[in-house]
Nucleic acid binder design. Structure first.
Lengths: 335, 335
DNA sequence: TTGAAAGCGGTACCAG
DNA sequence: CTGGTACCGCTTTCAA
C-alpha cells in the first residue's frame, strides 16, 4: 500500500502553484493554459506552458478527478492472465469498457486465495466497480466491496451479487451424444482439481453420461495447465485402459491431453477422442484441431460490462436468467 | 471521456458528510470508523458503519488519493491482448508492479494508430507513468505524455524516451547457423507486413543469412496472426518451391505456418523446418513443438517496471545498454 | 474519544 | 483576459 521510501531524493511534488509562481500568474491562468481554454492571451499561455515544462509539472489526476467526476474505473480480477480463456474475456471486457470511455485495471491473482483477498483489499479503494472470478467465500467478498457494484463470472453457487453464469448443460450433453454416436462407450473426464468441490462441468458430464447410458464415474483431476492435462490423461489411461474418449474441464487441459496422446502414440480422434470446454481460438492451431464445447467469451466480457453499467447507473439490472452465457458443441478434428 | 447521461435517475453521490449526519457524528469520526483507527468508541464505530452501509456509502478514491499520496498507477499499452506475447509481457509487468504495490491499467490499442493516440490522450490524465508498444511518431508521444515517465518496448529507432530493446542478432544468427548445419540452403523469412518499414528482425535475418552465404532475399509479408502465417507460407512456397526452411517474424506466424505445412502435407522438420521468434509457452503445445528464438518475456516486463520505478523516484535511470533483452535460440522439434 | 479547522491540487464561477 | 474565492471529499493535525 505504501510507496517504498525513495532514497530521500524525492523531489517534492510540483503543483500548479509552483508553476503559477514561476510564470508569474495565478493558478487559474495556469489551469486555463493547460486545458487549452481560449480565454487566455497567447503569450501568457506560452509562458505558462514553458514554465510548466521547465518544472516538469504534471497535474494530479486525483485533484482533477475530484473536481471533474467523469472517470469510471473498473477492476477486472482474473486468476491467470496466461490462461487464454481469461485473456479472451479480458480483451472483450477491455473493448466494451473502452466503448464507454471507461478504464480497466487488471489484477491477476495467480489463482491464489491470499492474493484474492489482498487484491480485494486494494481494489476497493481504487475502482468504481469490480468484475471478476473469485473463489473466496461470499462473506469476504462482501466485506471488501462495501456496496460497490460487483459482477461475478463463472460462479455457480447462488449469490447475493450479480453473477454471469455459464450454461454448458446442453453443450456437454451434445458432446457426449456425439461421442456415443461415434461408438464410444467408455468416456472419461479430466476434471480440474484445484477447487474443493467437483466442478459443475463435471455434473453436466455426469448427467449427460447417465442420459446416454454411459458410466460417468471415470474421472481424474487435472491441474489447469497443459502439463496438468497431459498428466491427467496418462493417469486416466493407466486406471482405465479401455477409455476411448475424454471430455475435459477446459481447453488447456484438452490441449495437454492431445499432446500426451501424441506422445503415447494414440491416434486422435481414431484411438482417442478428445473434447474440450471453452472454445479457445488456440484450439484451431493444433493438429487435429480441438473439438470443444465453446463459449462466447466476447459476449461474456461485454455482458459483464453491461451489467456493471446498469448497476452503476441505477438502471434496472439484468436478472440472473439474463446473465447466462450458453456453451455449445463446436465440432472439429479431435472428436 | 464524459459519462453517458444516466437517465436522470442519478442518485446524488453520497459523501462522508451524509454518513456523518446520518450517524450523528462528525466526518472525522466517520473517517476513523472506516479506516479502522483505534481511537474510537466501539459503539460509535458500529453506528457509523451501519449508517454507511445503509446509505451505500463509498469513499471517493480521488479525495482519498489526493490526501494520501500513496497510489501509483502505471498504464500498460499493448497492441493486442490476444497475442500471447503481449499477454506474457503484461503478466510479468503486472506481477512486478504488484510487488511494489502499484496498479496497472491495461490498454489494448488493437494495433490501430488512431487508438494509440486516443489512448495516449486518455492515459495522460489517468496514470503516473506509461509502459508500452507504440508505433506512432515520437512527437505525438511527447505531446501527450508531458513529462510523465515513459518506457517504450521493442522500439528500434533511437528515441528520447527510455526504451527496452530486443537484441535478437545473435539468436537469429544461431538460428540460421542451425538451419545451415542441417543442410538447408534455401531459407525464407515470413516477415510481418503491418508496419511500413521492414522489421529489424528482418535485418538480423539478412545479416545472418549473408554471413552463411545464404540468399537473404526470400521474404514474404504476413499478418501477425496464425492465419496470416499460414497464408504467407503458402505464398512463399508458391514463389520459391525450393525453400526448405523458414524463419518467421514471431511465433504466432510460425504456428500458422506449421499448421499450413501440415495441410500441405509437408513434414516438419524433415521437408520443411520452421523457426519462430518470441519463445512463447504456446509453442510447446503443438506438434512438433516449435523451435524459436526465445525472449525472456518475464524479464522484459520486470525490466520495464524497474525502469519506471527509477524514472519515478529520480534514482539514476538505467542506460540504453542496460535496457536490452537478449533473445536466444531454443531448439525444439520444428527445426 | 470526539470535533474543528486546515489543507491535498485542481477547476468553475464570479468579479475586475 | 486575468485573479479571487469557493468548493470537490477526504485525512490529518490539534484542541477540547
Amino acid at each position: 500500500m505504501v510507496l517504498p521510501s525513495t532514497a530521500g531524493t524525492e523531489p517534492r511534488k510540483i503543483t500548479i502553484n509552483d508553476v503559477a509562481k514561476s510564470a508569474g500568474v495565478s493558478r487559474q491562468t495556469v489551469s486555463r493554459a493547460l486545458n487549452d481554454k481560449d480565454e487566455i492571451d497567447v503569450d501568457t499561455k506560452q509562458r505558462v506552458l514553458d514554465a510548466a515544462r521547465a518544472l516538469g509539472y504534471r497535474p494530479s489526476r486525483f485533484a482533477r478527478g475530484l473536481v471533474r467526476q467523469d472517470t469510471m474505473t473498473i477492476g477486472l480480477v482474473i486468476p491467470d492472465l496466461l490462461n487464454p480463456f481469461f485473456t479472451e474475456v479480458a480483451a472483450a471486457a477491455l473493448e466494451a469498457a473502452r466503448a464507454r470511455g471507461w478504464q480497466v485495471v487488471v489484477y491477476d491473482t495467480g489463482d491464489r486465495a491470499e492474493e484474492e483477498l489482498g487484491t480485494l483489499q486494494v481494489i476497493s479503494s481504487q475502482v468504481d466497480a469490480v468484475i471478476g472470478y473469485f473463489s473466496c467465500p461470499e462473506s469476504e467478498l462482501e466485506k471488501f466491496t462495501r456496496g460497490m457494484p460487483v459482477v461475478l463470472i463463472g460462479r455457480e453457487q447462488r449469490t447475493r451479487f450479480s453473477a454471469i453464469t455459464i450454461d454448458g448443460a446442453e453443450g456437454v450433453h451434445a458432446a457426449v451424444a456425439h461421442l456415443v454416436a461415434r461408438g464410444h462407450t467408455r468416456i472419461g473426464m479430466l476434471d480440474h482439481h484445484t477447487r474443493a468441490e467437483p466442478s459443475i462441468r463435471h455434473e453436466w458430464f455426469t448427467t449427460a453420461a447417465r442420459a446416454h447410458g454411459v458410466d460417468p464415474g471415470l474421472v481424474v483431476g487435472a491441474n489447469q495447465t497443459a502439463d496438468g492435462g497431459g498428466a491427467a490423461l496418462k493417469a486416466m489411461l493407466a486406471a482405465h485402459p479401455d477409455v476411448t474418449a475424454v471430455f475435459t474441464f477446459n481447453d488447456i487441459i484438452a490441449l495437454g491431453a492431445l499432446r500426451e496422446a501424441r506422445r503415447l502414440g494414440r491416434n486422435v480422434p481414431h484411438e482417442l477422442a478428445v473434447i474440450g470446454f471453452d472454445g479457445l481460438q488456440l484450439g484451431a492451431l493444433v493438429e487435429p484441431p480441438l473439438t470443444s464445447v465453446a463459449l462466447d467469451t466476447r459476449g461474456l466480457g461485454a455482458l459483464a460490462i453491461e451489467q456493471v453499467a446498469r448497476l452503476l447507473s441505477g438502471t434496472e439490472a439484468l436478472a440472473a436468467d439474463e446473465l447466462v452465457v450458453r456453451a455449445e458443441l463446436r465440432l472439429s478434428g479431435s472428436a
